[in-house]
Amino acid sequence: MSDESYSRLVREHFANTEHAGDLAGAVAINADEQGIRLKLSATVKKGHIQALRFRAWGCPHVIAACEWFCSRYEGQPGESLSGFQASDIMCNLSVPVEKTGRILVLEDAVRSLGQRIGGGSAP
């Protein structure tokens, strides 16, 4: 059966939210825009992202995008967050263009998280 609404990756990441939750003693960023709510949490060790977690209230694309982001950026250098672009997710997960605004909220949150980590507020 064909499905125009969600790509295979969106379905997989929406169904398997292994990175959902919170982290103790983490840097955290909250966002509440465009009809979605996000919380990103990160712990950093020696300049690298040790763990990432998210919480999200939004459509399947937003939840899948958060999971995709967390799974891709764990273990990466903290400064890599500043280069995060919504277009990566839009392309990789085949997010429809009408959802761009919501994915941009995630981009803003990720970049804010990067600034917080880069600013030395990580534990």
Binding site: T17, A20, N30, D32, R37, L38, K39, R55, A56, W57, I63
Partner: peptide, 10 residues
Amino acid sequence: RLRDLAPAAA
């Protein structure tokens, strides 16, 4: 599940 996924409301 969806409520568990959501952050606390402001």
